[in-house]
């Protein structure tokens, strides 16, 4: 038997959150944590959690699994159960709506702040903006983020200042547009991140890298943004100096 401890909190009924233990018979074949939750929900329909695609694409079922953030749908039970025990909690740092469901408003507010869309003042004359294969390669490792919030909610800087520190997920996306050769607002994007909180509250502890279920490296992207801010160089400067040499 596996002892599954699940964080329970229903603000309409409970004064305080508590951990509820469920006994679960060890499955013959390895299953994902989401499948385990689905089976438990059949026994207790009040257990609340988000899920949708069940294949690590939608990013809905981010949660804290035995102390480490991850996606329940792509986390095999065998990889997380220790001494027949498993703790499931909501993503840390965000307000809990119910059980494993958190309020993502602050996370999305930071995402909105970095203007996650292509900005280009030059009119398009051939119907689409073209990009060389080399420039397209620069976006690999950046565009794949599914906004599951596992990284940002594992970051202490984001816990303490979710309204000021942009957080690893949104910063990865900020760099995704800064690095995009088709985007012409690099200077403005960097300017909007130049205060002491937005980027500089990242102290490089790399929890974000450790937990990212897609294997991305927000810390590297943050490092690139810091380098651009510190050198005073933006993409246009770099392209101009490359052209002169």
């Amino acid at each position: 038997m596996i002892h599954i401890n699940i964080y329970r909190y229903n603000p309409e009924k409970d004064k305080f959150p508590y951990m509820q233990t469920f006994e679960f018979e060890k499955p013959k074949r390895d299953i994902m944590v989401l499948e385990l939750l689905n089976q438990l929900k059949e026994k207790d329909p009040t257990i609340s959690y988000r899920r949708s695609c069940r294949e690590g694409v939608c990013g809905s079922d981010g949660m804290n699994i035995n102390g480490k953030n991850g996606l329940a749908c792509i986390t095999p039970l065998s990889s997380v159960v220790q001494k027949n025990k498993l703790d499931l909690r909501p993503l840390p740092g965000l307000p809990v709506v119910r059980d494993l469901v958190v309020d993502m408003t602050e996370f999305y507010a930071q995402y909105e702040k970095i203007k996650p869309f292509l900005q280009n003042d030059v009119p398009v004359d051939i119907g689409e903006r073209l990009q060389s294969p080399e420039d397209r390669d620069k976006l690999d490792g950046l565009y794949e983020c599914i906004l599951c919030a596992c990284c940002s909610t594992s970051c202490p800087s984001f816990w303490w200042n979710p309204d000021k520190f942009v957080g690893p997920a949104a910063l990865l996306q900020a760099y995704r547009f800064i690095a995009d050769s088709r985007d012409t607002k690099t200077a403005e994007r960097l300017q909007s991140l130049s205060d002491p909180f937005s980027v500089y509250r990242c102290h490089g502890i790399m929890n974000c890298v450790s937990v990212c279920p897609k294997g991305l490296n927000p810390n590297e992207a943050i490092g690139e943004i810091k380098s651009m801010l510190l050198s005073g160089k933006n993409k246009e400067n770099i392209i101009a100096s490359d052209g002169m040499s």
């Binding site: 130049s194 205060d195 002491p196 909180f197 937005s198 980027v199 500089y200 810091k226 801010l229 510190l230």
Partner: peptide, 9 residues
Amino acid sequence: MMGSTLFFI
């Protein structure tokens, strides 16, 4: 104050 200034200091 700018974040870069604090960083350099």
